[in-house]
Nucleic acid binder design. Structure first.
Lengths: 231, 231
DNA sequence: AGAAGTGATGGCACTCAGTACCCTCGATTA
DNA sequence: TAATCGAGGGTACTGAGTGCCATCACTTCT
């Protein structure tokens, strides 16, 4: 029922456009009553984002159950990856939706309010877990916004390319940039290389590398290669 | 005419609520025809943000006319201050509007799409002026989002306090945090702090790199390159 | 089995935002 | 004086969203 409504809606939206399609058109094609549409979707816009409500719940639970001694920024990055995975799970659908939201202002506005709720959840998590820090609330808002922006950047680039290519890699790079900018131990110039290699357990083996500044790069690479390649 | 519509609308919105007020109520109180309302405001929501369209134009022109050899990040921060000044110019109005947008989902969504257009303009400016840098587009999106988040944080804090206190000071602090996070090390604008908090990198010459086993080599190399070759 | 409850669905009527079209009126201009 | 034009007003329409009630299938209790 839900599925048939979504299917009928997208068929019509892609064919004749979002605004040119009425609820009556959708329910007629789906073969259900008009009233039933609003039982499954609170608004016409919501049928375009059928999985976001569940994804938001999933993300919220993930953050709630995250270990209290972990790095909140990393946890928030991982939460963003959760959302990205939802998009990546159905590239065709995501690309079609992207084309729709790009040209229909009403859908863009609706997507913004959906994304805003993700950002709120991230900021709240950072605020709670990053307590004790000066400017904690400010930092929480800014980092959450940056993570969302990085997510959106990677996602949009991938969607614009028609869903071809490696979203995850783009996401790694984008989140890496954000994490580096906001990590305590180092500025944007590097260090903090622990940025989001996929969500491994915290007790995973790590390599610690010490090098003097000015060390020839080839030498470092040789050492790192030996240490990392062993796995 | 425009003013009388705004005045009538806010009077009713604050009295009986946004959704409980119809367009007919507003035009009846203002003593004008219903059709005239939509001549001045494209939607019921727009009457709550009467000055944003002009402010967006103003901000766009400011960025367009900004000197080409200035720091784009600083220019974007100044553009955000422009918007903040618009709010600060009428504290009572801004506080009333804040209370409305906080509790009416439709208004929140509308505000989000307004803010999104500001963010777009900032990102575009950063993309154009910050050319030549690797990851320029990503950086533009993230910095724009961070600046907007800092602006919103300072603004919301001030609005929650009822419009009392110094917004400009809060804005300085918030933007300062963002600028510090994204400044290149040894950047031209003072305080070469390369990270969020005060922890300056001690002057010793050792770089510590942490990486999980299985980390792609290219990423390690990238980070090491930045850390070792940076100075 | 029959009655009664329950949840999913369909139908109908209504409110209200937003739009298209046309009217009026006053001011300007040929 | 006649033609034009622009601001405002009125009317009727479309379509989203809601409330209310009827229907139907399925279950549960007696």
């Amino acid at each position: 029922m839900r599925e048939s409504l979504i299917k009928a809606a997208f068929q019509l939206f892609l064919d004749r456009g979002f605004e040119q399609t009425t609820i009556d058109d959708i329910v007629a094609l789906a073969g259900v009553g008009r009233r039933s549409f609003f039982r499954y979707f609170p608004s016409k816009e919501d049928v375009v984002f059928p999985d976001h409500e569940g994804c938001l719940v999933e993300m919220t639970e993930y953050l709630r159950d995250a270990p209290a001694d972990g790095d909140p920024v990393q946890q928030v990055c991982e939460a963003a990856r959760l959302v990205l995975r939802m998009y990546a799970a159905d590239p065709l659908f995501s690309v079609q939706r992207y084309r729709l939201t790009r040209e229909v202002p009403g859908l863009r506005a609706h997507e913004l309010s959906v994304v805003w709720r993700y950002e709120l959840a991230l900021a709240e998590h950072l605020r709670e877990r990053g307590a004790g820090r000066a400017d904690g609330a400010l930092r929480a808002d800014v980092v959450a916004a940056a993570v969302v922006a990085a997510h959106n950047h990677a996602l949009r680039t991938w969607l614009r390319a028609g869903g071809e290519g490696d979203v995850q890699a783009a996401m790694d790079q984008a989140l890496g940039y954000v994490v580096r900018a906001f990590s305590d131990s180092a500025g944007p110039h590097g260090g903090g290389g622990t940025d989001g290699v996929d969500g491994e357990r915290p007790d995973e083996e790590v390599v610690v590398l010490l090098a003097r500044k000015g060390t020839p790069l080839w030498r470092v690479v040789r050492d790192v290669e030996g240490a990392l390649g062993g796995s």
